[in-house]
């Protein structure tokens, strides 16, 4: 996240607070796809992820008077979507096979073997995905929010409801773990 993003967020948050529908639409167009993808990672249910994200935007507009322009609106969105997705997943797990969600996740690594891509490179990518997936849940979530959603430490802290220091610790631990695995992997492929 850079300063342009931050000013942009503040401008949109201000606009929405003042009932500017165009600001709302702009934020929706920018964030809806990312948030649906984010929700899907938790729920593994496409329609539910779309519904949850739309609900959150409805809620945002209904509660626009309470928006605090000094706080990141992105954090608020991610946090709300995250909470609701976990609730959804918890409720559904009671019905469905609890193994299901994990099984789906494992299956869903995209096949990286594009025709032109170097096989080594593709293999390494696959490995990295596996290693990220194998991280402890909180570490993985922190890493993904930071690396893939581009949130800064403060925003992640707000999303996950922990301190900035904890975010930093999770991220450090995740990177240490990835580094260790990567090292072992390189060692193993050199020995071959």
């Amino acid at each position: 996240m850079n300063n342009t993003d931050e000013t942009e967020q503040r401008r949109l948050a201000d606009g929405i607070r003042k009932s500017d529908q165009r600001a709302f639409d702009e934020l929706f167009r920018a964030m809806y796809p990312r948030l649906v993808r984010f929700a899907f990672k938790i729920t593994r249910d496409w329609n539910a992820s779309c519904d949850i994200t739309q609900d959150i935007f409805v809620m945002l507009w209904q509660q626009r008077n309470n928006i605090d322009p000094d706080r990141s609106i992105h954090s608020w969105l991610y946090r709300s979507v995250r909470n609701r997705s976990y609730n959804y997943q918890r409720d559904r797990r009671n019905i469905a096979d609890p193994e299901m969600a994990d099984a789906l996740t494992d299956e869903s690594y995209p096949a990286d073997v594009l025709v032109n891509e170097d096989r080594q490179e593709a293999l390494l990518k696959r490995k990295f995905r596996e290693w990220i997936h194998a991280l402890p849940l909180r570490q993985r979530e922190t890493f993904e929010l930071s690396r893939f959603e581009g949130l800064c430490h403060q925003e992640i802290a707000a999303v996950m409801d922990v301190s900035v220091k904890t975010v930093n610790n999770h991220l450090t631990a995740a990177l240490k773990q990835l580094r260790m695995r990567y090292k072992a992997y390189r060692q193993a492929s050199q020995d071959q």
Partner: peptide
């Protein structure tokens, strides 16, 4: 190096709503 290598490891799923799907969702909201 690891940070860089993970850059295009889009979180699964790779799929995001398209522009059209987003407009439909916005209308519904």
């Amino acid at each position: 190096d690891i940070w860089k290598k993970c850059a295009d490891l889009q979180p699964h799923p790779v799929r995001k709503p398209t522009r059209k799907e987003t407009e439909i969702a916005l209308k519904s909201v």
